[in-house]
Amino acid sequence: MMEKFTTVAFDADDTLWHNERFFRLTQDRFATLLADFAEPDHLDERLLEAERRNVGRYGFGIKGFMLSMIETAIEVTEDRVPARVIREIIATGQDMLAHPIELLPHALDTVSSLAGRYRILLVTKGDLLDQERKLAQSGLGDLFDGVEIVSQKTPAVYAAIFERHGVRAEGAIMVGNSMKSDVVPAIEAGGWGVYVPHGLTWALEHADAPEGHPRFREIPDLGALPPLIAALER
């Protein structure tokens, strides 16, 4: 590296704290509620179709997921879904919105160790109120120099974020568990993309890794990030 990094940006859900596993648990509960109307695999397919249709309408997050579950329930029951099932779906969404935050391993130590030496940003998708709640409960909020809650993560969005914070793209690293949202578009915007695999990844976040790209790296967990940055700066 000819120049030092100035900025490290982190995704939030399933990078800093658990998220997808709560969606999976809720989806299992949804399957139980509709067991008399659809097989679990078929129901999962119909729900994913609804989520794919609706992400442009409702955005990412729990509220959109809840509306997609309601829509799917109406469809698979041919408009005969009992009111109690709708009530239960709403209750599951409310439970998700109230669930306490659970940090992933090394999240606090890694962000703390990099803060002060680099500009630290949070760049996340999702519902504004819910993401603000999770950040406040995480205990990480004071470590970030900037927080960006966006509806989509595209190269243009990353470029605008870098410009807004006075960041050179080539001096910025985006760290996250989604190849589609965190890694590929950040690289296409001129930055670095560091992939941190998570055991559970939403189907709509899958994408091919940019293997061989000079600004792409993969690490096993967040604990490996500070040594990686140090090695890149040598």
Rank of each mutant, 00 (worst) to 15 (best):
A203M: 14
K125M: 06
F5C: 08
F22D: 10
Y58L: 07
E45D: 15
A38C: 10
S181H: 08
T201C: 09
T32N: 14
R29G: 11
P82E: 10
K153G: 07
A224D: 06
G190R: 02
D142L: 13
G61P: 15
G116T: 12
E51G: 02
S181M: 00
V81I: 12
H99F: 09
L232C: 13
P185Y: 05
F144K: 02
E132K: 14
L225D: 06
A136V: 00
F5S: 08
V150L: 09
A172L: 03
G190D: 02
S138W: 08
M96K: 03
F65L: 07
M2P: 11
T72F: 07
G93K: 10
Y118M: 00
T92Y: 10
F60M: 04
M2S: 15
E163V: 00
G193W: 05
L228Y: 08
A209F: 02
I70D: 11
V184Q: 02
S113I: 03
Y118I: 01
Q27N: 01
N54C: 01
M96T: 01
P185D: 05
W17V: 04
D142N: 14
T72K: 07
Q152Y: 12
D41P: 01
F5I: 06
I101K: 09
L128Q: 12
Y158W: 13
L108K: 08
A209G: 01
P185R: 03
P214H: 08
G141I: 03
I62P: 03
L140G: 06
L232F: 11
A207W: 01
R52Y: 03
L97E: 12
F216C: 03
P214R: 10
V81G: 08
D11I: 07
A73K: 01
A98F: 02
R21I: 09
F216N: 02
G93S: 11
E3N: 11
N19A: 09
I149Y: 05
L228P: 07
L108N: 03
R133C: 11
Q94A: 13
E163L: 10
L108W: 10
G141Q: 12
F5E: 06
I187V: 06
L48C: 04
